[in-house]
Design a binder for these strands. Structure first.
Length: 457
RNA sequence: GGCGGCAUAGCCAAGCGGUAAGGCAGAGGACUGCAAAUCCUUUACCCCCAGUUCAAUUCUGGGUGCCGCCUCCA
């Protein structure tokens, strides 16, 4: 079945045609590891994970490459200012290397908690300095870049006729809309740094033909993508915010180097909003996987929430919505787990609908509705069908529900209530149940005894 | 100022020319000592105005509102 993907480059859905039959290479723009990854960042990686799983569901052998940016992100505009890693290091009184390592681990752990499959290759910018330098030297020697003394090597965007093709902005428009010029030495405001000179006190620096320095932000993606996936790649993903600057610049330098189209399909995920606006530390709405855990949510419930919306529409995060997702996930899992295991073949009709939905530019919300249909179906092969669906959804449908220990005092209350019930003292038993409910314990009496669910407030 | 996105039931959200998937919440019923859980049933004329069409939530034009990017950001 054909796979359709919305390509930012053409602003339309296109049928996916891989460079090599049955194989797909995808490069996922990874995080800059100077602070904790928040759930907005994570939405993007859930999207990339769904893409990868969908391709594998279609039988493609996927090479999934993700970078870790552990150097080179600059703080202020015009490629001036301090490296974010350096800034983080100063803040926490650690070396940039320690900062990067710490947050990389945290990030990888978050991916795991969200059931995001580990990329085939995870590559760090600092491990590819030589390759980046080679890349820059090549562009420089061929006249696509120029040096600003005492500053660095800049890419000359005017050397490319189609700069701006991804975001739909021409150089003229960029020029017209440019804010006050900071760096007067640049030939065009859109010119960007490939390599920066490092002042002596700069901790992360490497020798280069132009003296000690460090790489610009965009160069790592082009370099590592070409190293691991070749000069042309199938798919490149990232957040919608990367379209205008980062990806535009990646295209510029890459296509300048190879002289041909670099990426066939550009896919971008929309933002996660919080209470209708942007997530930021100052608004105190900066949430991480740990924040979810603190509120006793299964991180997969956040994944569920993301699956419920298409990756190209903004999704509004609220705790109310999180709660709804949590409830829905528990119910779906329970329904799945209560289905009988059967040797029968799954319903081909439903399987086909599901397949069609995910292949249609990842219409996962629709696919999810078919999962509900299967979960509530009497068809004999429904459980097997859901197993199949879960390869893409990644909701761990067979996960055991979180059984938490009941604190001793609540356990005692529960015992007391069971006594009261045995004595048919309904008034007392109901009163005890109210107490337990108010403490977050949900009581379920059944023929084979009393069950409970505990969710601390 | 430039570029882009979004507007569908109380909430989240698919669909995108032929009269609206799914989830959460709510209502009714079954079950229960009563509940909870579960199961069944049930809840929308799709921001406004104009146009195209036999037919528009779905296309075109114009509004209004919200969000994002143009400085690092998923």
């Amino acid at each position: 079945m054909e796979v359709k993907l919305y390509n930012t480059l053409s602003r339309s859905k296109e049928t996916f045609a891989p460079l090599v039959p049955n194989k797909a290479g995808m490069y996922v723009c990874g995080p800059t590891v100077y602070t904790y990854a928040h759930i907005g960042n994570l939405r993007s990686y859930i999207f990339a994970d769904l893409l990868r799983r969908m391709l594998e569901y279609n039988g493609y052998e996927v090479t999934h490459v993700m970078n870790i940016t552990d150097v080179g992100h600059l703080v202020s505009d015009a490629d001036e200012g301090e490296d974010k890693l350096v800034e983080g290091a100063k803040r926490e009184k650690k070396t940039p290397w320690e900062i990067a390592e710490f947050y990389t681990q945290d990030f990888m752990h978050s991916l795991e908690e969200l059931n995001i499959l580990p990329p085939t290759i995870v590559c760090k910018a600092t491990d590819h300095i030589q390759e980046m330098l080679d890349f820059v030297k090549e562009l420089y020697s061929r006249g696509f870049a120029y040096r600003i003394e005492g500053d660095g090597i800049y890419f000359d965007v005017s050397k490319l006729a189609d700069y701006g093709k991804l975001s739909g902005q021409s150089l003229d428009e960029l020029q017209a809309g440019a804010r006050i010029e900071i760096n007067e030495h640049k030939r065009h405001p859109a010119d960007f740094a490939l390599w920066k000179d490092a002042p002596p006190e700069h901790i992360m620096q490497w020798p280069s033909p132009w003296g000690p320095g460090y790489p610009g932000w965009h160069i790592e993606c082009s370099t590592m993508s070409m190293k691991y996936l070749g000069k042309k790649i199938d798919i490149h993903t990232g957040g919608i915010d990367h379209v205008p600057i980062h990806h535009e610049n990646e295209i510029a330098q890459s296509e300048a180097l190879t002289g041909e189209t670099w990426v066939n399909y550009w896919l971008h995920g929309e933002f996660l909003q919080v209470d209708g606006g942007k997530m930021s530390k100052s608004l105190n709405n900066f949430f991480t996987v740990s924040s979810l855990r603190e509120r006793h949510f299964d991180p997969i419930a956040f994944r569920f929430m993301c699956l419920n919306a298409h990756y190209r529409t903004p999704l509004n995060f609220t705790w109310e919505g999180m709660s709804a997702a949590h409830t829905a996930l528990q119910r779906l899992r329970q329904a799945y787990q209560q289905l009988p295991t059967s040797p029968d073949q799954p319903s081909p009709q439903l399987a086909a609908k599901f397949h069609k939905a995910i292949n249609d530019d990842l219409n996962v919300p629709l696919a999810l509705s078919y999962a509900w249909e299967a979960a509530r179906s009497d068809e004999p092969g429904s459980k097997a069908l859901l197993d199949q669906f879960d390869q893409v959804l990644g909701l761990n449908l067979n996960a055991a529900p979180l059984q938490q220990e009941l604190p001793p005092e609540l356990k005692a209350l529960l015992e007391e209530r069971n006594q009261a019930r045995a004595n048919k003292n309904w008034a007392q038993s109901d009163q005890l149940r109210d107490q337990l409910t108010s403490k977050g314990v949900t009581i379920k009496d059944s023929k084979d005894g009393t069950h409970w669910e505990y969710k601390p407030q």
